[in-house]
């Protein structure tokens, strides 16, 4: 296991379940998604249960998370956007806690699987589409028609805009998944160097200091990336929701 950097992403069935020929098994991925939701929920619930007027340390972490997302959403989508606050906040907390849980050794990183992140991205884009069409009807399609474009170029521009819109869920999901995947593989590879160099006696052990230092540095970087990707995911969600709220300008 130590030599294979991909092994950590393997999905194993914990409780095999099959309904009507479809595989509904409870896998390690499912387990860690449950752990993510339970962890985030328990953290927010327990830290805010004291309801101190002057917050303690943990309570102020929860409050900072709230303020952070609330001001982000308000800046991007205006105060109308606040109706999506529960949605954006849940997404942010899920991605953040899943990323951070993945930093524990031997833990499974849910967000390193493209199907998970793609499902989240489709949820965002689906919300944008449904809300946009429900609120503005066909006026939502004005999103694809920029002002002041000559009539001849219009079909081309609209086609490009449509492709650009469709590429959003892809870029949203691929960004998160690729960052987590690449980061964890790099970490594993460098950590693997330490053990394999250590096998070559004293000189190897002296050389192993370099990859060890690298591993420590990369771990720090990975924590930054874990937070950053959750942040970017939430920011882009806010911007896309803004399109649903105010299309056409």
């Amino acid at each position: 296991m130590a030599t294979d950097p991909i092994h950590q992403f393997q999905i194993s069935k914990w409780i095999p379940i099959e309904i009507g020929g479809l595989d509904f098994s409870f896998t390690n991925a499912s387990a860690f998604m449950v752990a993510t939701v339970a962890g985030a929920g328990a953290f927010l619930f327990l830290t805010t249960s004291s309801r101190g007027l002057v917050p303690g340390r943990l309570q102020s972490i929860s409050e900072m998370a709230y303020e952070f997302i609330a001001s982000m959403l308000r800046d991007a989508a205006g105060s109308h956007g606040m109706r999506f606050f529960p949605f954006v906040f849940s997404l942010f907390m899920f991605v953040l806690v899943a990323n951070l849980l993945g930093m524990f050794p031997y833990f499974f990183t849910v967000t390193s699987h493209v199907i998970v992140t793609f499902a989240l991205a489709i949820l965002v884009i689906g919300t944008v589409l449904v809300y946009g069409f429900w609120k503005h009807g066909l006026g939502f399609l004005k999103l694809f028609v920029p002002d002041g474009v000559p009539g001849v170029l219009m079909p081309l521009v609209v086609a490009i805009e449509v492709v650009s819109f469709l590429s959003r869920p892809v870029s949203l999901s691929v960004r998160l998944f690729a960052n987590m995947l690449a980061g964890h593989i790099t970490l594993k590879v460098f950590a693997g160097f330490v053990t394999s160099l250590g096998a070559f006696g004293v000189a190897g052990a002296a050389g192993a200091v370099l990859p060890l230092a690298m591993t420590v540095a990369l771990t720090g970087l990975e924590f930054l990336v874990a937070f950053l990707q959750a942040y970017v995911f939430a920011v882009l969600t806010c911007m896309y929701l803004n399109d649903a709220l105010h299309p056409g300008h």
């Binding site: 803004n242 105010h246 300008h249």
Partner: peptide, 8 residues
């Protein structure tokens, strides 16, 4: 694409 979005 919502001229407000990218700037903000």
């Amino acid at each position: 694409f919502g001229s407000k979005a990218p700037k903000k």
